[in-house]
């Protein structure tokens, strides 16, 4: 009983501090590595549907991780890869590899607001957001998808370049996971990301379905995570430009 009370008190205390909520979300989601295969389905405003598959590998955790994303399908894009080096104190470094050209290119910081290869994600959305790069405000509590959530506001600090002036985050109170994130530019909603189908994989609650809505373009992208694994052994050298060049 005392244990239960202590947990409730701790939850209340965390609930008072929005930064601690976000840090707890990140703490609970921490893993040494992650791997999955994702299926991206983009549905345009005119209901045109395109599909892509990729393999995602990440080593390290929030704010200090390296990730590699390789497209598997369709055949025209097979082997195209994106390398992301996340940093705690600054924006990530990103490179793209195009096998047909045998060329890598750096994705500039200014370009992070552009769409991620025709999906409704932006390059920035693929970055891992370290809590230290934002200021948070707790706006209240709301029920979303039948779950009690904290509604937080996050604003990038001066050092961080972001396309969003602020974002709203809905965090499930029971699992400390995001349910929804809305990115705004001033008063305009640019993008809404919904996290669905949470599943506990090796003790980590993970959304198996992400849905992104680009409000301006009225197009929608869903990303389905398959073959999800955590704690897979990975090496630093798998996250270099040289590694990207290796054929699939």
């Amino acid at each position: 009983m005392s244990k239960w009370i202590a947990f409730l008190l701790a939850s209340c205390a965390l609930g008072q501090d929005p930064r601690q909520i976000v840090e707890e979300v990140q703490r609970r989601n921490r893993s040494t590595s992650q791997r999955y295969e994702g299926t991206l389905t983009v549905t345009s405003a005119k209901s045109r549907v395109t599909q892509k598959r990729w393999r995602y590998e990440r080593m390290g955790s929030f704010g200090d991780s390296k990730a590699a994303l390789r497209f598997l399908e369709p055949p025209e894009v097979k082997g195209v890869a994106l390398l992301v080096h996340n940093h705690r104190d600054r924006s990530s470094d990103q490179w793209m590899w195009t096998p047909e050209l045998q060329r890598d290119r750096r994705i500039a910081l200014q370009d992070r607001s552009t769409r991620f290869f025709g999906t409704d994600f932006s390059f920035e959305d693929l970055e891992e957001r370290d809590a230290g790069q934002f200021d948070y405000k707790l706006l209240g509590e709301e029920k979303l998808d039948g779950q009690m959530c904290w509604k937080l506001e996050s604003r990038p600090r001066q050092t961080k370049r972001s396309q969003y002036t602020h974002s709203y985050l809905w965090v499930r109170q029971d699992l400390y996971v995001y349910v929804m994130v809305e990115g705004y530019k001033d008063q305009e909603l640019l993008r809404r990301i919904a996290y669905r189908d949470y599943e506990n994989v090796k003790g980590l609650w993970t959304a198996r379905l992400l849905e992104v809505l680009d409000t301006k373009r009225r197009s929608r992208t869903t990303m389905k995570l398959e073959k999800l694994e955590y704690g897979v052994p990975m090496k630093d050298e798998d996250f270099t430009l040289q590694a990207l060049r290796r054929p699939l």
Partner: peptide, 29 residues
């Protein structure tokens, strides 16, 4: 990947897509 911040590519049709599939555009020389 970032040029649209300086230039506007008004594409034919109502679709705001610059190209059918930007990834294929970049992947195929």
């Amino acid at each position: 990947t970032g040029d649209s911040s300086l230039r506007e590519y008004n594409l034919e049709g109502d679709d705001e897509d610059v190209i059918d599939d930007p990834l294929i555009f970049l992947a195929q020389p």
